[in-house]
Design a protein around this nucleic acid. Structure first.
Lengths: 236, 236
DNA sequence: TACTTCTGGATTGTATACGTTCTTGATGAA
DNA sequence: TTCATCAAGAACGTATACAATCCAGAAGTA
């Protein structure tokens, strides 16, 4: 196997068959857009019928989603949309705070005109989704913005880790987000693009760090579980 | 769903059924012990026969291994042991250098007597494997040592990422390792345990960093692909 | 000889059948 | 009423059948 073939494998890995799995792509998107709230039961037969495939394909997709922590599989109990605990939520953001600022710095170093243009276009799309009150779509695009920066940094391994953490953040936000608006994002993202356009690595790193701290601090873990608490829990 | 249930899901996630998948556990172990070299073809029928299960179970295990980057799946072409490119190898170690020192620092802060005892016991086992010339087993245990430290740091999300990177390192070492001995490990690991026992966080962080740099620097990427080069490549 | 085309065997991808486990509502006893 | 037991239905886990794809060697052509 030649180096170029190795590279090709590295880049598509196992995505090749995953993007063609309608269960994986469909459920993933629905989760990222918060149309499927945490805890939602995902019965294999229902998904098979909805997507017009056999349970075999459904199970492949669900297993992939489970590896991304977007879905929880319990033996003999089937799949449900993941329900990240406060602890997991905190840890995901701690990991992001560790990885993403470094990525932003490297992205600012490397970014060319095409990269900046793509980022601006994407920010525009985010803005439009917000204006149209499509908050689910806006949230998914907002996450994707972070992934784009990680990709510009051109470190695929770390970018992939970040992509996973960002995905899980959608669920975390669904459970623990306290603010009604995500207007912060728009300003933060634009400021980041500006820094990247100037190739100001230090500034980009600091902006990313503060952006993540901002996000993290807008999470409240004390009441996140209330909707699932039993009456006994709430009375005691 | 209660918080404690969330935690339970978080900890076992999907491991519950994976540890019971003989293909996953068997092939993973063989890869970590370098009994299955990179590129080895993994035909579903062969695995099914060897482990006495149907192809369904084989495919589940292979998909899990693919998500861990230990196995490459190519549509209609089946599975083979992953063959990380020099680039991927470099990136994996860059990610480790970013994450593990921080983990070691936190582990040194948190470690109690039981943790230190477990680490010493483990180091002893490593030592015995080396003495017995079981280099595969020694390598697997050496990786596991790094995972243990990440677990002591008590950040499951990051520990899981590290576990994945460590696993991939076995393949990387199989491909690009230049030195015959891993004696470095023994000294490095013992020094790390000492620092952790003293709860010397700064020292543990620095020891981990230098240990990883040492490992990384012992990799040579220029000749890793030679055995797979075509005659034309080698003559030109 | 070098190259293309074709074909049989092998391998993977998907659907489906069936056994096992779990859930849930009914039944009955305390 | 409350609880335990149990049975029917639903859902999951695994095996297997069949279709689609790939690969290697044979045959044919220049």
């Amino acid at each position: 196997m030649s180096i170029s073939q190795q590279e090709a494998n590295f880049s598509r890995r196992l995505d090749a068959d995953l993007v063609q799995n309608p269960v994986f792509t469909g459920v993933e998107r629905a989760i990222l857009e918060q149309r499927l709230p945490p805890g939602t039961r995902l019965a294999e037969t229902d998904l098979a019928e909805f997507y017009g495939v056999s349970r075999t394909v459904v199970r492949t997709g669900l297993q992939a989603l489970a590896h991304s922590h977007l879905v929880t599989l319990r033996p003999n109990r089937g799949a449900s949309v993941a329900n990240p605990s406060p602890r997991e939520a905190r840890e995901v953001f701690e990991a992001r705070e560790l990885l993403e600022p470094r990525s932003a710095r490297e992205a600012a170093r490397r970014a060319g005109r095409a990269d900046v243009r793509a980022l601006r276009l994407h920010a525009q799309e985010e803005h439009e989704a917000m204006s149209a009150n499509e908050s689910g779509r806006a949230l998914r695009l907002s996450g994707r913005f972070h992934v784009m920066i990680a990709q510009i940094a051109n470190q695929r391994t770390i970018a992939e880790i970040i992509e996973n953490l960002v995905s899980r953040s959608s669920l975390i936000i669904a459970l623990y987000w306290t603010r009604s608006s995500t207007r912060c994002d728009e300003g933060c993202h634009n400021a980041l693009i500006d820094a990247i356009e100037r190739n100001d690595a230090v500034e980009a790193e600091e902006l990313m760090r503060s952006h993540l701290v901002e996000l993290h601090s807008a999470l409240r873990f004390d009441n996140g579980d209330s909707s699932n608490k039993t009456l006994k829990d709430m009375l005691s």
